[in-house]
Amino acid sequence: MKRRQLLQAASAAVALPGLALAQSYPAKPIRYIVPVAPGGGSDMIARVVTERWGKALGQPFTVDNQGGGGGVVACQTASRAAPDGYTLLQGYVATHGTTPATRRVPYDAVKDFTPIGMIGATPNVLAINANVPAKDVKEFIDYVKRNPGKLSYGSAGPGSLTHLTMELFKQETGAFMLHIPYRGIAPAINDVLGGQTQAMFPGLAAALPHLRSGRMRALCVTGTQRSPQLKDIPTMDEVGFKGFDAMQWYGSVGPAGMPADIVRRLNETQVAVLKAPDLAEKLAGEAVDPWPMTPEQFGQYMRADIARWTALAKARNIRLDE
């Protein structure tokens, strides 16, 4: 009888290998690669989320910051890891959106990764120097068109979300502004404040202090819903630009080929963490709203984001490796 029971148990384990694997997972700490240096907003999001996520899984996460090559180093490391659920990556709009759209990278942002789930997103805000005589988007567009070649906008660098979002705005409005790229968001904002440039599309967290001080004026935000932090500011969708939902987003992925049951376990525990009210309060410091999704929804979102920026880069002749 005992021998028969052992054979039945062994047969069940063979028949349901994924189930047995998921039930024993995780059995050790999980490496969580973050493609930026320690201390920034993306790093903070990773540490806040993984602290709670590790408790939900019963094993801690070890945050591994790999900031080289604008996320390329981290993506290569993660994509080459064993697909066993013990190495994950915090992908974001650059690694799985704007960068693959504007330059050659040594990884495939879709084929080399397994989507686990969206973490959250923050909008970009169309912000102008307070002295620009425009109170809303329509007035700003009219002002730009009445002054062809006289206005410029800043960005955090060529190919960045701040650059591509404004190029999308120019494409949809027919307005022209000269692009002035900077090495990072801070100097770009400083020149808007000083009047050297007149507008930009910074992330909301970077713009908020200057919007609240009155030195910059917000005209609208990207995304499909108004930001809780700028409740009186309309979305691009509201002012007539349907589908203009460019967002600074963050999500978790693993190497391609991860077992479905492990992906499901990771996603379900991540979603539970994201739905906790105290997490929303923690992420509010970066103006990030939790945005839980299934792995399928997140994969679809990433593919659509890459397609959006690839089409724009082609239309605007933005290619950074030629």
Rank of each mutant, 00 (worst) to 15 (best):
Q8I: 15
A15I: 04
L21W: 03
A22G: 08
Q23E: 05
Y25G: 00
R31D: 13
P35L: 03
P38R: 02
G39C: 08
D43W: 04
M44T: 13
I45M: 07
V48M: 08
T50Q: 06
E51T: 14
E51P: 03
E51N: 11
W53H: 09
T62G: 09
G70V: 01
V72Q: 13
A74K: 07
A74G: 09
L88E: 08
G91P: 04
V93G: 14
T95S: 15
V105K: 11
A109M: 07
D112P: 08
T114L: 07
I119Y: 07
L126Y: 13
P133H: 12
V137L: 14
V144P: 11
S152V: 09
Y153W: 13
A156K: 10
G157W: 06
M166E: 15
A175C: 03
F176W: 11
G184R: 01
V192K: 02
A207G: 10
L211F: 02
R212F: 01
G214A: 09
G214S: 11
R215D: 14
T222I: 02
Q229M: 10
Q229T: 09
L230F: 06
K231M: 07
K231P: 04
D232N: 05
D232W: 02
T235Y: 12
E238Y: 10
G243A: 04
G243R: 06
Q248R: 00
Y250Q: 05
A256N: 07
G257W: 01
M258K: 01
N267C: 00
T269R: 09
V273A: 03
L274H: 01
L274G: 03
P277N: 01
P277W: 01
D278W: 00
K282A: 15
A284D: 06
V288I: 12
P290Q: 06
W291C: 06
P292K: 02
M293W: 00
Y301K: 05
M302R: 14
R319A: 08
